[in-house]
C-alpha cells in the first residue's frame, strides 16, 4: 500500500467516524433530516466566507459554515413555530440556502477549485497532495488535521457533557426541570454537527457527508442497547464503511465517496438482517423455534 492510500484511508475513516459519532445523536433525537439540511446549507456558509476573505479553507470557512449550520436549525425552528409543518420547514430552508450557495459559487467563485461536483462528492482522492505546512515542516494532509480536529473537539465536548447530552436526547422536558440549559446544549450539538460536516465536506461532499452522518449511527442503533456502546459502534461501522468503500472504489475505479456510502448501506443491511438482538432473520428464527417448541409441548 502506498502512502497516498494510507492518507486517503485515514481521512475517510476519520470522516466516517466523526460524522457517525455526532450523527448518532441526530438519529436518537429524530433529527436525521435536520442533519441532511445542515450539511447542504454549510455550502452557503463556505461560499460566503470565501467571498468575504477571498481564500478557501482556514478558520473563516469553518466559522462561516458553523454559523450557517446554526442559522439553518434556527430558521427551521422559527418556521415550525410560526405554524409550518416541520418537514416542510426543513425542505424549504435547506433547498433555498443550498441553491443560493450554488448560484453564488457559479457566479463569483467559478475559478476556484470548488466546483459543483466537488460540492456534492468531495475530492478525497486529492487529499494526500494538499499538505499542511507549518514553519517549513510538512505535517501531513490538511484534511487529516481539519477532520481530526473537528472529531477531537466533538469527543471532548461530548465527553464533558455526556450525561447532559444523554438526558437532553432522552427526555428534554425533564432535563429542563432539573435546571439543565436544554436549548444551549441543543445549539452546542448543532454547532458540532456543522463543524463536523464542514470538515467532511471537502473530502466527501454534501450528500455523502449526510450518509456518514446517518448510516453508521442507524446501524449502531440496531446493534446495541447502550448509548456508550452505540457511539463506539458507530465509529467502528464508520471505519468499516470507509475501508470497504475505499477498497471497492479502487478495485472498480469508481467514486470513493459514493462507494463509501454504498458500503455503509451494505453494513447497515447486514445489521438489519442479522443483528442478534433485532435483526429480521434472528427474530424470525427465534419466533419459529418458539412456535415449534410450543407445538412439541402440546
Amino acid at each position: 500500500m502506498m502512502i497516498e492510500d494510507f492518507w486517503v484511508l485515514l481521512t475517510a475513516s476519520l470522516v466516517a467516524s466523526s460524522c457517525g459519532f455526532i450523527g448518532s445523536f441526530l438519529v436518537l433525537r429524530k433529527m436525521a433530516m435536520v442533519g441532511d439540511a445542515i450539511s447542504h446549507s454549510v455550502l452557503l456558509g463556505i461560499v460566503l466566507a470565501f467571498l468575504l476573505t477571498q481564500q478557501l479553507g482556514g478558520i473563516a470557512m469553518f466559522i462561516g459554515a458553523a454559523l450557517m449550520g446554526l442559522f439553518t436549525t434556527f430558521v427551521i425552528q422559527l418556521l415550525h413555530q410560526g405554524g409550518a409543518q416541520e418537514d416542510a420547514a426543513i425542505g424549504v430552508t435547506f433547498t433555498g440556502l443550498f441553491a443560493l450557495g450554488v448560484v453564488l459559487l457559479s457566479l463569483y467563485a467559478s475559478n476556484v477549485h470548488l466546483d459543483t461536483e466537488h460540492v456534492l462528492f468531495g475530492e478525497i482522492a486529492y487529499v494526500p497532495w494538499d499538505i499542511l505546512v507549518w514553519n517549513g515542516i510538512e505535517l501531513g494532509p490538511r484534511a487529516v488535521w481539519t477532520v481530526g480536529g473537528a472529531f477531537l473537539l466533538t469527543l471532548v465536548v461530548t465527553g464533558l457533557f455526556f450525561k447532559e447530552f444523554k438526558l437532553c436526547a432522552f427526555d428534554p422536558a425533564y432535563a429542563l426541570t432539573l435546571g439543565i440549559p436544554v436549548t444551549l446544549f441543543h445549539y452546542v450539538q448543532m454547532t458540532l454537527v456543522s463543524l463536523t460536516t464542514v470538515a467532511a465536506f471537502d473530502s466527501v461532499g454534501a450528500v455523502l457527508g449526510v450518509a456518514m452522518l446517518i448510516v453508521p449511527g442507524a446501524t449502531a442503533y440496531l446493534l446495541t442497547d447502550k448509548l456508550e456502546r452505540m457511539l463506539l459502534l458507530s465509529v467502528v461501522v464508520g471505519v468499516l464503511s470507509a475501508v470497504l468503500g475505499y477498497g471497492f472504489a479502487v478495485w472498480l475505479d469508481v467514486s470513493i465517496s459514493g462507494a463509501m456510502a454504498s458500503a455503509a448501506g451494505f453494513v447497515f443491511a447486514l445489521a438489519f438482517l442479522f443483528s442478534p438482538r433485532s435483526g429480521i432473520i434472528p427474530t424470525a428464527w427465534r419466533r419459529r423455534r418458539v412456535l415449534s417448541g410450543d407445538g412439541a409441548e402440546a
Binding site: 450528500v207 452522518l213 448510516v215 456510502a261
Partner: peptide, 15 residues
Amino acid sequence: TAQGLVLTVFFGVGV
C-alpha cells in the same frame, strides 16, 4: 432516519 438513510445510500450507489 430511514428516509435519510435510504436517500444517501441510494444516492451513493447512483454515484
